[in-house]
């Protein structure tokens, strides 16, 4: 069933000029994850500055939204990890040697210079390698290091009385709060950059549409 869901052949028969880049499971996961992260950011803003920001009506509602969104993101992250390991699609996220050099400098140069000159994308997505080197590095770091750090700090916060001794060991709830806040800022910034970079595909809406339909244009170099 997993193979069926991931199989690009069915649709490719009709649309040979396009490639099936994002299987339906990944797309569903992506959008659920997006909604949850946005909810977490918005509710987190109200919880952190309750005296100036009121989006959810009351402080306790914001906390409830944040807590439950957090729980769902934990589940959704574990599902993502499980799915990618089982399906071996985790390889999309692991940077290879050539990605580090010359991949990253090349991609960075494109964003900093080439994009304004109308140069073609240095790397184009394929079924076997759907992310460019910078994407790979960013997603790898976010999903392997930062997301766990964000979630663990969130869990410690969520059950701070249960983990009281551990929290005391690492320096108290303040340390947890600082880590959680820094991660939240990084994720909020990442969300902005991610949304913007999604417009730097072949067309402005190309990447966004591909994350809805699953299909992306093939680019010839």
């Amino acid at each position: 069933m997993l193979d069926y869901a991931l199989s690009p052949e069915r649709e490719n028969r009709k649309m040979s000029e396009k490639m099936y880049l994002h299987p339906v499971i990944e797309r569903i996961w992506h959008w659920i994850h997006a909604i949850l992260i946005i909810l977490l950011i918005i509710s987190g803003i109200q919880i952190h500055w309750p005296d100036t920001i009121n989006i959810f009506g009351s402080h306790s509602t914001a906390i409830t939204v944040h807590e439950w969104s957090g729980i769902f993101v934990i589940c959704d992250f574990l599902l993502w990890l499980f799915y990618n390991i089982i399906s071996k699609r985790v390889s999309h996220y692991i940077p290879r040697k050539e990605d580090l050099y010359p991949g990253i400098p090349k991609q960075a140069r494109f964003y900093a210079y080439g994009i304004f000159k109308g140069e073609p994308h240095p790397y184009s997505a394929s079924e076997d390698n759907k992310f460019n080197p910078l994407q790979k590095m960013a997603y790898f770091n976010f999903m392997v290091f930062m997301m766990p750090l964000l979630l663990i700090s969130g869990i410690l916060y969520l059950y701070s009385s249960c983990f009281a001794y551990f929290i005391a060991f690492i320096g108290g709830l303040k340390v947890v709060a600082i880590i959680h806040f820094i991660m939240a800022i990084i994720f909020a910034s990442f969300l902005i950059a991610h949304l913007y970079l999604a417009t730097t595909g072949h067309t402005i809406l190309g990447d966004i549409i591909s994350m809805i339909t699953g299909y992306a244009e093939k680019e010839e170099h």
């Binding site: 919880i47 952190h48 500055w49 309750p50 005296d51 402080h59 709830l173 303040k174 709060a177 600082i178 806040f181 820094i182 939240a184 800022i185 990084i186 910034s189």
Partner: peptide, 16 residues
């Protein structure tokens, strides 16, 4: 509420 806030970190975060 807001007991673990650090104003300087808040400013830095908003700035980022």
């Amino acid at each position: 509420a807001g007991s673990n806030r650090i104003p300087a970190l808040d400013v830095l975060g908003i700035l980022i």
